[in-house]
Amino acid sequence: MDNLIQNFFNLEIYRAALPHLLTGLWTTVWLSAIVIPVGVIAGLFLALGLTQARSRLVAWAIVAYIDFFRSFPPLVLLILVYFGWPFLGIELDKLSAVVLAFGLNNASYYAEVFRAGLEGVPKGQMEAARSTGLTPGQALWSVVVPQAVRNVVPDLVGNSIEVVKLTTIASVVALPELLRAARDVQSIAFNPSPIVLAALLYLLILWPLTRWLGRMEHKRHI
Protein backbone atom coordinates (compact mmCIF):
# COMPACT_ATOMS: atom_id res chain seq x y z
CA MET A 1 0.00 0.00 0.00
CA ASP A 2 2.84 2.39 0.85
CA ASN A 3 4.46 1.72 -2.52
CA LEU A 4 1.16 2.48 -4.26
CA ILE A 5 0.85 5.80 -2.45
CA GLN A 6 4.48 6.76 -3.04
CA ASN A 7 4.30 5.99 -6.75
CA PHE A 8 0.86 7.29 -7.67
CA PHE A 9 -0.40 9.56 -4.88
CA ASN A 10 2.78 11.22 -3.65
CA LEU A 11 1.62 14.48 -2.07
CA GLU A 12 5.10 15.97 -2.04
CA ILE A 13 5.40 15.48 -5.79
CA TYR A 14 1.84 16.76 -6.22
CA ARG A 15 2.79 20.03 -4.52
CA ALA A 16 5.92 20.42 -6.61
CA ALA A 17 4.19 19.52 -9.87
CA LEU A 18 0.96 21.50 -9.41
CA PRO A 19 2.18 24.92 -10.67
CA HIS A 20 3.57 23.37 -13.86
CA LEU A 21 0.42 21.31 -14.39
CA LEU A 22 -1.82 24.35 -13.88
CA THR A 23 0.05 26.05 -16.72
CA GLY A 24 -0.65 23.00 -18.86
CA LEU A 25 -4.28 23.01 -17.74
CA TRP A 26 -4.64 26.61 -18.93
CA THR A 27 -3.27 25.57 -22.32
CA THR A 28 -5.83 22.74 -22.44
CA VAL A 29 -8.64 25.18 -21.60
CA TRP A 30 -7.82 27.79 -24.24
CA LEU A 31 -7.03 25.10 -26.81
CA SER A 32 -10.46 23.56 -26.19
CA ALA A 33 -12.01 27.03 -26.43
CA ILE A 34 -10.59 27.26 -29.96
CA VAL A 35 -11.09 23.77 -31.38
CA ILE A 36 -14.62 23.20 -30.05
CA PRO A 37 -16.18 26.26 -31.77
CA VAL A 38 -14.27 25.43 -34.96
CA GLY A 39 -15.69 21.91 -34.92
CA VAL A 40 -19.20 23.07 -34.03
CA ILE A 41 -19.37 25.70 -36.78
CA ALA A 42 -17.86 23.42 -39.43
CA GLY A 43 -20.10 20.55 -38.34
CA LEU A 44 -23.23 22.71 -38.55
CA PHE A 45 -22.44 23.80 -42.09
CA LEU A 46 -21.66 20.23 -43.11
CA ALA A 47 -24.99 19.07 -41.67
CA LEU A 48 -26.84 21.88 -43.44
CA GLY A 49 -25.06 21.04 -46.66
CA LEU A 50 -26.04 17.40 -46.29
CA THR A 51 -29.68 17.92 -45.35
CA GLN A 52 -30.32 20.77 -47.77
CA ALA A 53 -28.24 19.53 -50.72
CA ARG A 54 -30.07 19.36 -54.01
CA SER A 55 -27.20 17.58 -55.69
CA ARG A 56 -26.49 13.94 -54.90
CA LEU A 57 -22.84 14.56 -55.71
CA VAL A 58 -22.61 17.20 -52.97
CA ALA A 59 -24.43 14.94 -50.50
CA TRP A 60 -22.15 12.01 -51.31
CA ALA A 61 -19.06 14.19 -50.93
CA ILE A 62 -20.18 15.34 -47.47
CA VAL A 63 -21.05 11.78 -46.41
CA ALA A 64 -17.63 10.62 -47.63
CA TYR A 65 -15.96 13.39 -45.61
CA ILE A 66 -17.91 12.52 -42.46
CA ASP A 67 -17.30 8.77 -42.78
CA PHE A 68 -13.61 9.22 -43.54
CA PHE A 69 -12.75 11.51 -40.64
CA ARG A 70 -14.91 9.58 -38.17
CA SER A 71 -12.96 6.45 -39.12
CA PHE A 72 -9.45 7.96 -39.40
CA PRO A 73 -7.41 8.01 -36.15
CA PRO A 74 -7.05 11.64 -34.97
CA LEU A 75 -3.54 10.97 -33.67
CA VAL A 76 -2.37 9.83 -37.10
CA LEU A 77 -4.16 12.79 -38.69
CA LEU A 78 -2.30 15.24 -36.43
CA ILE A 79 1.03 13.57 -37.20
CA LEU A 80 0.36 13.75 -40.94
CA VAL A 81 -0.65 17.42 -40.77
CA TYR A 82 2.28 18.56 -38.63
CA PHE A 83 5.08 16.26 -39.77
CA GLY A 84 3.88 15.20 -43.22
CA TRP A 85 2.70 18.42 -44.85
CA PRO A 86 6.18 20.06 -44.78
CA PHE A 87 7.19 17.47 -47.41
CA LEU A 88 4.50 19.05 -49.61
CA GLY A 89 5.86 22.52 -48.93
CA ILE A 90 3.19 23.36 -46.33
CA GLU A 91 4.54 24.13 -42.87
CA LEU A 92 2.24 24.90 -39.98
CA ASP A 93 3.08 25.96 -36.45
CA LYS A 94 2.01 23.66 -33.62
CA LEU A 95 -1.21 25.47 -32.77
CA SER A 96 -2.34 25.75 -36.39
CA ALA A 97 -1.64 22.07 -37.00
CA VAL A 98 -3.60 21.04 -33.91
CA VAL A 99 -6.56 23.31 -34.73
CA LEU A 100 -6.67 22.08 -38.33
CA ALA A 101 -6.38 18.38 -37.46
CA PHE A 102 -8.88 18.62 -34.62
CA GLY A 103 -11.20 20.74 -36.75
CA LEU A 104 -11.25 18.18 -39.55
CA ASN A 105 -11.88 15.36 -37.09
CA ASN A 106 -14.36 17.06 -34.78
CA ALA A 107 -16.42 18.58 -37.60
CA SER A 108 -17.37 15.08 -38.75
CA TYR A 109 -18.76 14.17 -35.32
CA TYR A 110 -20.56 17.45 -34.79
CA ALA A 111 -22.01 17.14 -38.30
CA GLU A 112 -23.68 13.86 -37.37
CA VAL A 113 -25.09 15.43 -34.21
CA PHE A 114 -26.52 18.39 -36.11
CA ARG A 115 -27.80 16.17 -38.91
CA ALA A 116 -29.86 14.19 -36.40
CA GLY A 117 -31.17 17.43 -34.93
CA LEU A 118 -32.12 18.90 -38.31
CA GLU A 119 -33.83 15.72 -39.44
CA GLY A 120 -35.73 15.64 -36.15
CA VAL A 121 -37.44 18.97 -36.84
CA PRO A 122 -40.85 18.34 -38.47
CA LYS A 123 -41.01 19.47 -42.08
CA GLY A 124 -44.14 21.40 -41.21
CA GLN A 125 -42.00 23.87 -39.28
CA MET A 126 -40.31 24.99 -42.50
CA GLU A 127 -43.63 25.22 -44.30
CA ALA A 128 -45.19 27.22 -41.46
CA ALA A 129 -42.22 29.61 -41.44
CA ARG A 130 -42.43 30.06 -45.21
CA SER A 131 -46.14 30.86 -44.92
CA THR A 132 -45.27 33.91 -42.80
CA GLY A 133 -43.28 35.37 -45.67
CA LEU A 134 -39.80 34.24 -44.69
CA THR A 135 -37.38 33.19 -47.42
CA PRO A 136 -36.05 29.60 -47.31
CA GLY A 137 -32.78 30.85 -45.82
CA GLN A 138 -34.50 32.97 -43.19
CA ALA A 139 -36.84 30.11 -42.25
CA LEU A 140 -33.90 27.74 -41.96
CA TRP A 141 -31.79 29.97 -39.71
CA SER A 142 -34.62 31.52 -37.69
CA VAL A 143 -36.88 28.51 -37.18
CA VAL A 144 -35.34 25.16 -38.11
CA VAL A 145 -31.75 25.54 -36.90
CA PRO A 146 -32.65 26.87 -33.41
CA GLN A 147 -35.03 23.95 -32.86
CA ALA A 148 -32.45 21.47 -34.11
CA VAL A 149 -29.78 22.87 -31.80
CA ARG A 150 -32.09 22.69 -28.77
CA ASN A 151 -32.85 19.07 -29.57
CA VAL A 152 -29.20 18.04 -29.56
CA VAL A 153 -27.71 20.15 -26.75
CA PRO A 154 -26.93 17.04 -24.62
CA ASP A 155 -25.16 15.41 -27.56
CA LEU A 156 -23.19 18.60 -28.26
CA VAL A 157 -22.09 18.79 -24.62
CA GLY A 158 -21.14 15.11 -24.58
CA ASN A 159 -19.15 15.48 -27.78
CA SER A 160 -17.40 18.58 -26.43
CA ILE A 161 -16.33 16.67 -23.31
CA GLU A 162 -14.70 14.10 -25.58
CA VAL A 163 -12.96 16.89 -27.49
CA VAL A 164 -11.43 18.24 -24.26
CA LYS A 165 -10.02 14.78 -23.54
CA LEU A 166 -8.87 14.53 -27.15
CA THR A 167 -6.59 17.54 -26.65
CA THR A 168 -4.19 15.20 -24.84
CA ILE A 169 -2.87 14.03 -28.20
CA ALA A 170 -1.59 17.55 -28.88
CA SER A 171 1.37 16.45 -26.76
CA VAL A 172 2.77 14.55 -29.77
CA VAL A 173 3.69 17.88 -31.38
CA ALA A 174 5.07 19.19 -28.05
CA LEU A 175 2.20 21.60 -27.46
CA PRO A 176 2.41 22.14 -23.68
CA GLU A 177 -1.09 21.04 -22.71
CA LEU A 178 -1.89 19.30 -19.42
CA LEU A 179 -0.73 15.79 -20.28
CA ARG A 180 2.48 17.09 -21.84
CA ALA A 181 3.19 19.10 -18.68
CA ALA A 182 2.57 16.01 -16.56
CA ARG A 183 4.94 13.93 -18.66
CA ASP A 184 7.63 16.59 -18.40
CA VAL A 185 7.41 16.57 -14.61
CA GLN A 186 7.27 12.79 -14.55
CA SER A 187 10.54 12.59 -16.51
CA ILE A 188 12.19 14.74 -13.85
CA ALA A 189 10.63 13.13 -10.77
CA PHE A 190 10.92 9.55 -12.09
CA ASN A 191 7.47 8.99 -10.59
CA PRO A 192 4.05 8.61 -12.26
CA SER A 193 2.30 10.76 -9.64
CA PRO A 194 2.15 13.81 -11.99
CA ILE A 195 0.18 11.73 -14.51
CA VAL A 196 -2.33 10.81 -11.80
CA LEU A 197 -2.55 14.47 -10.74
CA ALA A 198 -3.25 15.43 -14.36
CA ALA A 199 -6.06 12.87 -14.45
CA LEU A 200 -7.48 14.34 -11.25
CA LEU A 201 -7.41 17.83 -12.79
CA TYR A 202 -9.28 16.54 -15.86
CA LEU A 203 -11.79 14.96 -13.50
CA LEU A 204 -12.15 18.24 -11.62
CA ILE A 205 -13.05 20.26 -14.71
CA LEU A 206 -15.07 17.60 -16.58
CA TRP A 207 -17.05 15.96 -13.78
CA PRO A 208 -19.45 18.95 -13.35
CA LEU A 209 -20.10 18.93 -17.10
CA THR A 210 -20.69 15.18 -17.00
CA ARG A 211 -23.19 15.56 -14.16
CA TRP A 212 -24.95 18.37 -16.04
CA LEU A 213 -25.06 16.17 -19.13
CA GLY A 214 -26.58 13.37 -17.08
CA ARG A 215 -29.34 15.66 -15.85
CA MET A 216 -30.12 16.85 -19.38
CA GLU A 217 -30.26 13.27 -20.65
CA HIS A 218 -32.58 12.35 -17.79
CA LYS A 219 -34.93 15.25 -18.54
CA ARG A 220 -34.93 14.42 -22.24
CA HIS A 221 -36.15 10.89 -21.57
CA ILE A 222 -38.84 11.82 -19.06
Rank of each mutant, 00 (worst) to 15 (best):
L140H: 02
S32Y: 10
G39C: 01
A111S: 14
L22T: 08
P74S: 14
S131R: 12
L104G: 06
E162F: 10
V29M: 10
H221Y: 01
L22F: 09
L100Q: 11
N7A: 08
R150Y: 01
R180C: 00
L80N: 04
L21R: 09
R220V: 01
V152E: 13
L206E: 08
L88T: 15
W26L: 14
L31I: 11
L44Y: 01
V163D: 00
P136N: 03
Y65R: 13
E162D: 07
E119Y: 02
P192A: 05
A101N: 11
N191C: 05
W212L: 11
P194S: 12
V99P: 03
R150H: 04
V144Q: 09
F83P: 11
S171G: 06
L75D: 08
W141P: 01
N159D: 09
P37Q: 00
A199Y: 00
L48F: 08
Q186K: 04
I34Y: 02
L4M: 09
R130P: 00
H20I: 08
K123G: 15
L31P: 13
E162R: 09
L50I: 08
G84M: 10
E112P: 05
L203M: 15
L175P: 02
G103W: 01
R130W: 13
A198W: 06
L104H: 03
G133P: 04
L201G: 05
L201F: 09
Q6E: 11
W26P: 00
N159E: 14
S96W: 10
I79G: 01
W26S: 13
P86G: 09
I62G: 10
S193T: 15
T135V: 10
P37R: 05
S96L: 12
N3Q: 12
D155H: 06
T132I: 10
P74W: 04
V163W: 01
Q125C: 07
R54P: 03
G120A: 12
Q138A: 15
K94I: 03
F87K: 15
V185H: 09
T210V: 12
E162C: 07
P192C: 03
G103D: 02
F102D: 00
L88P: 14
V76T: 14
L178F: 05
S187N: 04
N151H: 04
A64S: 11
N3H: 07
R150M: 05
V81G: 07
I90D: 10
L77D: 11
T167I: 09
Q138L: 13
T28G: 06
A107E: 02
R180Y: 13
G117W: 04
H221P: 00
